[in-house]
Nucleic acid binder design. Structure first.
Lengths: 196, 196
DNA sequence: TGTACATCAGTGAACGCGCGTTCACTGATGTAC
DNA sequence: TGTACATCAGTGAACGCGCGTTCACTGATGTAC
């Protein structure tokens, strides 16, 4: 009952969240491909099979991380929309900021295995729907109804693409990246000479 | 000299391009993670070590594929810009079409290992610069000079994001995807109510 | 308050796998004479 | 035209590796009496 926090105890006591935390650190260090049952165990100070008391497989851990990521992203956007800024701009800035703060997680969430996760995971589907809904709600205040679907996909493409380019270091960080993000999102709301 | 095309000959005669072709087929089937020296050899009807006469490592094959991809993407855009459509729109459509036609390759080109490839590869850097230049040339005809860098990043983000969302199957293909692409790119040139 | 015991979290050894790469080799090719 | 030979493309065996997962187990925990 009186826990010696430094001693390594046979029963970890808090293993499930610890495993997830270690897995998350791993993807941030080495990308989604660096996820490994054995390495997760190693970092948690536990043998690899111990994890099987909490997850059926490595894929289950990855799916759990993705779920976590979508929940956090959704919350982050919620919080931004409560702020003083205009909605779409604040949401977009928050979106890109999340990706930049959690590049490994973001890549896991939207990477190749994405479809596999969201297929069977109700929580992920719900978070995604919530994010999309927030965006559409705002767009509906500004546009005629028939423009909304296209505008939503437009905005999602823009923020997703910008987030990935920055994560991948393909935007030369000449100026402050934060102001660059803002500039681009603002530019999206301005007139480009009509493309046809 | 007179080659029996069906017989398996000791000397393959055309191995280097064959290896690249098999590697390319592999990433299209299973994504960049499916690249494997041994599987490439297997498909080429050759032992795995044979490949080492042409490439120093698996990474070298991947880099070669990425180089090929950037060259093709650049050519595809060139071709589109020679056509009858307005430049930016035609270029954007061609860009997304390339990604949709070569999803595995596109992911390899812009994936996590991207930085590693383009660092030492002059050909890749040149292709990318060429693509970017084409875009900027067109933008310069339409915008004041100080808007061009932001507009370029804006456009690249948009097309990149749209390409990936489609590749990842995150756009429900309710309508024809081709017209959807066009709609979005056109929308990018229209007015969104100013975001502030 | 003290003890027997059921529970189940965590262990260590082992499985089979596929991988990238190295190595000493073999055998087809085409050139020099 | 025919033969010796250098070249080097491709081979098969082997290396060492890390992985996901299974298995029979051990030992800490907390509850029932």
């Amino acid at each position: 009952m009186t826990r010696d926090k430094t001693a390594t105890r046979y029963h970890h006591g808090n293993l499930r969240p610890t495993l997830l935390a270690m897995a998350r650190a791993l993807i941030e260090e080495g990308g989604p491909a660096a996820l490994s049952m054995r390495e997760i165990g190693r970092r948690a100070g536990v043998s690899a099979p111990a994890a099987y008391h909490y997850f059926n497989s490595l894929d289950a851990i990855a799916a759990s991380l993705a779920e976590q990521g979508f929940a956090e992203l959704s919350e982050t956007i919620d919080a931004a929309l409560d702020g003083p800024r205009r909605h779409l701009l604040a949401g977009g800035i928050a979106y890109v900021a999340f990706a930049r703060a959690n590049p490994g997680l973001y890549r896991l969430m939207f990477g190749e295995s994405f479809q596999a996760y969201s297929k069977g995971n109700e929580a992920i589907r719900a978070s995604r729907a919530r994010i999309y809904r927030q965006m559409k709600d705002d767009l509906e205040k500004r546009l005629t109804p028939e423009d909304v679907p296209i505008a939503a996909l437009f905005l999602w493409s823009l923020t997703h693409g910008l987030a990935l380019l920055m994560i991948d270091g393909q935007v030369e960080p000449d100026a402050d990246l934060d102001t660059k993000i803002e500039d681009i999102l603002k530019f999206a709301g301005m007139r480009l000479p009509a493309a046809r």
